[in-house]
Structure formats: C-alpha cells, structure tokens
Amino acid sequence: MGGASVVGRTTVTVQVNGQERRLELDSRVTLLDMLREHLELTGTKKGCDQGACGACTVLLDGRRVVSCLTLAAQCDGREVTTIEGLAPGGELHPLQEAFIRHDGFQCGFCTAGQIMSAVALLAEERAGSDAEIREFMSGNLCRCGAYPNIVAAIREIAQQGGGMP
C-alpha cells in the first residue's frame, strides 16, 4: 500500500435544517465538505478551508462555527443550520432582506457566512453599536469590500429588535 494509510469510515446522524440526515463518511470529511459534497448544500462556501475567512460559517446547536474546522464526525447527534435553512418555506429572514436592501454584498461569495454570523451576532446580543458590529463581524472577510453596507444591514435589524420572528 505504499505510504497510504488505511482510512476509517464513520457514521453520523445529524439534524440539518430540521431534517435528520444519516451519512457514512470518510472520517476526514469536514462539516463543510459534508454539507457541500455529500448533501449538495452548496450555499455554505469554502473561502480558505483554514478557519480564517468565515465564508463557511453555520450554526451548530445555535452557535456560529466555521464548518471547515469542524469534522462531520463531531456533529453526530447535533443540529446544524445553514443558509438554506434560514428561510424555510421561502419567506426571507429579515437579515436576508436587509442584506438585499442595503446591498450588503457584491459577488455574494461571503454572503452566506456573513448572514449566518449576523444571525448569531444578534442572538449573542453583540450588535449594540456599529463598533460592536464591526468588531464581532471581523471574522467574516469580504474581499468585495461590502463592509459598510453589511454593518448598515445588521444595524437596521438589530434596532428592530434582533430579527427574531
């Protein structure tokens, strides 16, 4: 077998956007690759695969995580919410609407991560001021430079009471 090592398989059962999914995976598969390559949920993006850009942000049991640094195996028995799960039934989440209104993106590649991060930010009650929003959204890179518009979108929803349905 040359230098290749035997690779383990793992079985995970995970709630993704409210649906129970059971998968048998290569144990090296990250949560991000599980979503993108195995569940065809490609809304969550891979910008760096190194935990440094935030494009892959999803909610794991309601908290934001970078899914590229989370192994799928760690998610067994847990709940994952992705951008596709934010608007069940087609009605947009207030933050999604605000991002459109304030032009909080250009290419859109960072957008899923920005929005998931912002959802968590509101839940964490860390959107009290522009400075706070800027600080706690700084794990989400936007190379298109949509930051001022992203801040404006989050500010608007935070002022309306956090976008809780």
Partner: peptide, 13 residues
Amino acid sequence: DRIDGQLKVTGGA
C-alpha cells in the same frame, strides 16, 4: 436592488 440578490442571500447562486 440587485436582481440576483435573492439568490445570493439564500445560497442559491
């Protein structure tokens, strides 16, 4: 508003 906005905020692009 961008006409592709809805796709981009839902992960559909």
